[in-house]
Design a protein around this nucleic acid. Structure first.
Lengths: 347, 347
DNA sequence: GACGTTTCTGACTACGTAGACACATTCTGA
DNA sequence: TCAGAATGTGTCTACGTAGTCAGAAACGTC
């Protein structure tokens, strides 16, 4: 063979390392490292020479080597659920934005249905990548989950049963209070009671919203109608709406997210029951289209940025100086209700 | 100080490495490596002993070391736009699913508005992480972008001007044909012409859909009304709808995504113009709630899985055996139109 | 039983970075 | 002028994995 022995990398002559920069600048590799990390005790003239050499070679620090040397990757893994739902998607964007400002990189893994091990499998995948911390984006409780033990800080947006971690942090919007708020709004309009189209009860957020609804009813002494459970999607809201539409007793419904509320609205419209004339509806999330539905939807907006920022701040702190402390009780951001035209006083 | 010198890692006595496994199993580190990689020429009995030792120590391969040794990270970076829009979110989920089956890990970076350098900055961030390939999820053309040069394979879902890469791959749904399809449907119903509420023209997908609309009009000899440009969100659709509602000539509208179509529907409803009685509307995306709007929306669904799968297959192939070839002309998956109740024959 | 395979195992090494430490040079103050 | 600090630079090394190569052990064949 006349060809040179193949380089271990792609084939293009090896990417330059700090050694190459050092040679070009006429200094030692260690000095290059110093310049790279902005350490003191480098003569200004040398610093400039090294920086010029870096630019000339198109040098870029090798993160694998750095990670190996330091024993950490500056990387955080997020376990998502593999859906394009508004809440999870918005939260992921917030996570990325927040994380980037901390200097950590972001790996994501989805737990797909039918996936071996579900969350456990996803976590394992992240551990193999060598992440320094893990975020459980939408903790769900399948019931058949095997317990998960991780020797890393874990941030969970909702409580996750069966999780043992080096330190388990918890943050999240206060779904319970939000559910209570939505229900109280409807009760305050004079409705005898409020029906509830819940999210899938495997989801922590769905359970909390239901709890809030239940609390509000109990506090008002209102009877608690049977719960209808959907899957967050409009189709399931539509089905629930069809059933509720047949019952004249139903005058107020709290739907656990806006997408399902769209389905409920449609079912009521088809059944000829006017909103808010005969039935009042409150949604949850305040998706961008909520204001443009027929009628515009009264709903509870979520402040993802706030609780994501708090959670990640805690997580990063825990990674960099492990205390093993639980995160402080999350002070919830102020709750709001956006009142539009899908709710009206009981007739 | 009486405490032991701090270990370079978090503090817990160092994570076990292949050397520790080797010691426990009474073999050399290299043999552990062989077992780990399923290489032949390891006596069955030894293999079992090593595997037992791995389990006992909770051994997990150190990926940083592996990456350093191999000169590649088995990692692909995705540049997203930092929105929770349906299309991008759905596509990201599809990317994760597909990528995982190839053995690559996924890093994501958003290009936030106001971010230094936009796409260029995001790409730089990924390069620093040492990714082996890059995906531009929603290529947009800001006009003021500095050109981007990368010595890596890059997969772009839409053409990205100013990109120079080791090999630039391109895949994407055929937005042009889809736009034509939507427009032809409306023309076929007897409408004299079709108005268009376009997406932001910085987006490749938005430009393509507009092109398709234009082509269909031209082919039918229909006059081309002025284009209204939105930002994908319902609010912008609402504004466009308000303007269109005042013009009795408007009997058919192709809206570049379903979210904006929701806004258009709302504006028409408020103006007392019935859909589809007076005005027909076609959306794009087929979001889950499209079937539950009032009226249920006729729309063009996108097949993300198909083009993501094709694109990533090409990208991975290009990473593992670089040919520098352009990807073959993408054979588009069959286009569909979901006809619901927002379109009707012209009166 | 001598030879050649095939199977199996280990020693040594590179990968790129940054920490520990040694040493040289310059500066400061008495 | 000299001790001692402050400043600047280089050498050596560890980090954990897997490639290269050397060689040992087991097997078959005439």
């Amino acid at each position: 063979m006349s060809e040179a022995k193949p380089a271990p990398n792609g084939g293009r002559g090896r990417r330059p390392g700090s050694t190459d920069v050092a040679r070009l600048a006429g200094v030692s590799q260690k000095t290059v490292s110093r310049v790279l990390n902005g350490e003191p005790y480098v003569k200004e003239e040398v610093r400039l020479r090294v920086q010029a050499a870096m630019r000339e070679l198109g040098y870029r620090r090798n993160n694998a080597a750095r990670a190996l040397n330091e024993g950490r990757n500056r990387r955080i893994g997020v376990v998502c659920l593999g859906t394009a739902l508004f809440g999870p998607s918005t939260q992921l964007v917030a996570i990325e934005r927040t994380l980037r400002s901390t200097g950590y990189s972001l790996s994501i893994v989805n737990t797909l249905e039918g996936d071996t091990g579900g969350v456990a499998g996803a976590v394992e995948h992240l551990l193999e990548q060598g992440v320094d911390g893990i975020i459980l984006s939408e903790p769900i409780d399948e019931g058949d989950d095997q317990p998960i033990a991780v020797d890393l800080p874990v941030l969970s947006f909702g409580q996750f049963p069966g999780l043992t971690a080096r330190s388990a942090l918890y943050t999240g919007g206060d779904n319970t209070s939000a559910g209570r708020l939505a229900t109280e709004h409807l009760l305050g309009l004079g409705h005898r009671t409020v029906w509830h189209v819940a999210g899938p009860q495997r989801w922590w957020a769905a359970r909390e919203r239901l709890d809030g609804w239940r609390q509000a009813l109990a506090a008002a002494g209102a009877p608690e109608p049977p719960v209808l459970e959907g899957d967050w999607l409009p189709a399931s809201g539509y089905e629930a709406g069809q059933r509720l539409a047949t019952d004249d007793e139903v005058t107020a419904i709290f739907v656990a997210n806006d997408d399902m509320a769209i389905g409920v609205l449609r079912a009521l419209a088809e059944a000829g029951r006017s909103v808010p004339g005969e039935v009042s509806i409150v949604g949850f999330d305040d998706i961008p289209s909520a204001a443009y539905l027929s009628p515009p939807l009264t709903t509870v907006p979520q402040d993802f940025d706030a609780h994501v920022a708090r959670g990640i701040a805690n997580l990063v702190m825990e990674i960099e100086s492990p205390t093993g402390d639980r995160s402080p009780a999350p002070e919830s951001p102020p709750l709001r209700l956006v009142i539009r035209h899908s709710t009206a006083p009981a007739s």
